[in-house]
Design a protein around this nucleic acid. Structure first.
Length: 359
DNA sequence: GATCCGTGGAT
DNA sequence: TATCCAAGGAT
């Protein structure tokens, strides 16, 4: 009943042995300074995104753009294409903005304080604290989904998120040590990712099992509680796949704001509940496959009709321009557009279309 | 504070 | 199949 308080040093000792091997991470005890650029890039990529998904993007980015100044000098289109498939595309736009501020105004060096970092595009409270702690050894309080879950459990906080967030932040701050704050931040997140998982937490091997109040109460797996989310509505839309005999396909750059902002996509109309209304981008013999692509975004389901037509070379479109496969292909598009592109192209090569992508 | 913004894996 | 969820930020 009288639990001892959770001890950061016990967690650090666990981390010294069990730290995950991640490409952007300096292992504990290596006595090396983490590269702020690598920390920043990885943390932005990891926002609401799994380690498994980030890994190859991080390696690709650091291979092509080894420093923040290299990234700042990159073409927007190249960066957006490299980000394609990772999601939350505002991150890529802000990544470039941030890199250019750092390269141009800060001599290529990231600010070494939480407040200084927080002022940069795409860096919010979490990312500022993470970079300050991991790259600059500042005792910043890192509060992400992992830390929220671990704090809610060891303190048995039953109030639901997001309302309980500031309570959890206070508990996390009280526990943050002055020594090894970077390792500590990564240790709590590793713990949440590998032991104190949302479902089936491995309490039996948890270094903090002794002080964990939720474990005592038998409610660890039920925490943190969350207020229910609204159901996703179904929206419908259409995209137009116009292809020339040389293989070039009509694509358009989407506006910076809004869904899939700044990314290339197939032209089409707005996506909405109810009837589909969208004029084709050019006159052609359109063949429509209804409901060809289904895709679920954060807050709605999409059923997308795909219209296809062969067109003559030299034809002019009302929007966008024709891209040869060498200029831009499905891999350069956000996933829903990649599905539509591959569906249409796959009418000639069915093996290219994954079965699960098609209604 | 509420809403918008992607994706893929696990269950 | 449906739902949840992940190292969140901007508005």
């Amino acid at each position: 009943m009288c639990n001892q308080a959770a001890d950061p040093e016990i967690l650090l000792a666990w981390y010294d042995i069990h730290a995950r091997d991640l490409p952007w991470r300096v292992p504990p005890g290596a006595d090396l300074r983490a590269d702020p650029y690598a920390v920043w890039l990885s943390e932005v990529m990891l926002q609401q995104t799994t380690v498994a998904a980030v890994r190859k993007y991080f390696l690709d980015f650091t291979d092509r753009w080894p420093t923040v100044s290299d990234l700042a000098a990159a073409d927007d289109d190249a960066v957006m294409a490299a980000w394609a498939g990772l999601g939350y595309y505002a991150r890529a736009r802000n990544l470039l903005k941030c890199a250019r501020v750092v390269a141009r105004d800060l001599d290529g060096r990231f600010p070494d304080t939480e407040a200084g970092l927080r002022d940069l595009p795409g860096i919010g409270p979490y990312t500022a604290a993470a970079i300050a702690a991991i790259a600059f050894e500042r005792p910043a309080t890192v509060l992400d989904g992992n830390v929220e879950r671990v704090m809610a459990r060891i303190h048995a906080v039953e109030a639901p998120l997001p309302g309980a967030k500031e309570t959890l932040r206070g508990l996390a701050a009280a526990l943050t040590p002055a020594a090894r704050p970077g390792d500590y931040a990564q240790a709590v997140m590793d713990l949440g990712a590998t032991i104190c998982t949302p479902r089936n937490p491995a309490c039996g091997i948890c270094p903090w099992r002794q002080p964990c109040r939720a474990r005592d109460l038998g409610i660890a797996e039920t925490l943190p509680r969350k207020t229910p989310k609204a159901a996703k509505p179904v929206r419908r839309g259409i995209v137009y796949f116009a292809q020339r005999s040389d293989g070039a396909v009509l694509l358009e750059r989407r506006p910076d704001k809004g869904l899939l902002g700044g990314m290339l996509g197939l032209p089409g109309g707005p996506w909405a509940e109810g009837e589909i209304v969208a004029a084709p981008p050019l006159e052609a013999d359109w063949q429509i496959t209804a409901g060809a692509v289904r895709h679920t975004f954060t807050h709605f389901h999409l059923i997308l009709d795909v219209a296809m037509a062969p067109v003559d070379e030299g034809i002019e479109a009302l929007t966008g321009r024709f891209f040869t496969p060498e200029e831009a292909g499905p891999d350069d598009l956000p996933t829903v557009m990649r599905k539509a592109y591959q569906f249409a192209a796959g009418q000639h090569r069915p093996s290219k279309v994954p079965k699960t992508d098609i209604a």
